[in-house]
Design a protein around this nucleic acid. Structure first.
Lengths: 206, 206
DNA sequence: AACAATATATTCCTTTAGGAAAACTGCACC
DNA sequence: GGTGCAGTTTTCCTAAAGGAATATATTGTT
């Protein structure tokens, strides 16, 4: 309970680190292993007993899996508070493209980080789909019904069964096909930098 | 010509500081006066003989009249390109908390925008859950099996059936319970400000 | 309750950050 | 070639960073 090192500038580094760490669900020891900093040093940082050096700040951010700016900026952009949107089964907004029938979920909320959808994959052949799609962001897919083939630019095609899930960078060209005789169904979440108020880029273009 | 402190991580902090300083047309002594750091320390920083502490990094940026991110920018990780991670049904990493059994999906990818999970909701009563959880980010939930009650800070409880989905800000206190006699199952995606390599904050705390 | 297991904090010690002042390094002018 | 001078580096020292090991919570288990 002596000097306080980190919060001399009015920024409570220790508290921020502690918050980021618990938010990531990590223990001090795990962060230590992932960052290469000793557990004792991390403990001292969190209690503002120690001001980490440049090198250790970089390592610490790596260990926490965050961007370095998180450890400095008081300039956090204010996220919307307390919104909630419910979509009952079958009650989303339907969009039909060449390869998919999309049901956009929770589309009454704008400026959200993620766009959830359900999709029925109607294409069964690569040529029905056309060129692979690529755009900024990342995607998660869960197979709800049927079997799904995921084509990507840098990987061999892979087939997913019901309950399987996949995560990929959508900067990489990609396409989803039904692998079975019937149309497949998936739950699909896209995240991009900007607010995606609408669907992601759809395969009808090009 | 001994150790090089600042560039151990492949980033030449010294060179960057020197460049920024000359671009601003300042001498070491002037930066020292404006930052409160001694000229000798600044000289050592510019020659990578010394890794400045958190406090001095903040002061240094002030003295140079720049944003802190300028001292790190090369370290900033750009969005990963072309990654893909597949998790077969039941093959995720399991985490058991008081109220949930979580299966973390695609956990081999770090620094992702979203964390997909499957969850089995074991809690059936509010008191089994404890206090509502709140943390940065947004969440999407799709009900896979059973019925689910979503408790939130600013809304009346709502019950979701199979196939229903909901989107909400996780800054608002929230909790998920099974509404039926059996445990319910959901697909769950969390997005936070930065990269979340692991689970979101879990209800066991508090 | 007692115990084990794990997470965090402290202590002790070595290395490094960082300040004050002295010692270079150009570079102008005489 | 000196002499002054502004800018930078080096030296020397102390105060703080940070690691290893130890102690102290804090948590789950029988």
């Amino acid at each position: 309970m002596d000097m306080k090192t980190g919060e001399s500038d009015g920024v409570d580094l220790g508290g921020r680190v502690k918050g980021l760490r618990s938010r990531a669900g990590l223990t001090i020891k795990e962060v230590a292993a992932r960052s290469g900093i000793s557990p004792s040093a991390i403990s001292k940082i969190e209690n503002n007993l120690l001001s980490p050096t440049y090198d250790n700040i970089i390592r610490l951010a790596q260990g926490l899996g965050i961007d370095i700016s998180e450890l400095f900026s008081a300039t956090r952009k204010q996220a919307p508070h307390g919104r909630r949107s419910l979509t009952r089964v079958g009650q989303g907004d339907y969009i039909r493209t060449r390869a998919y029938t999309l049901e956009m979920l929770c589309s009454d909320l704008t400026a959200k980080r993620m766009q959830p959808m359900k999709a029925r994959l109607r294409a069964h052949e690569t040529r029905e789909f056309g060129a692979l799609v690529a755009h900024a962001g990342e995607e998660v897919v869960l197979v709800l019904k049927g079997r799904v083939t995921l084509l990507t630019e840098f990987y061999a095609p892979v087939t997913l069964d019901e309950g399987d899930s996949v995560y990929f960078d959508s900067t990489m060209g990609h396409a989803l096909l039904s692998a079975g005789a019937d149309d497949a169904e998936i739950f699909w979440v896209c995240a991009a930098d900007q607010n995606l108020d609408f669907a992601e880029t759809l395969p009808e273009s090009t």
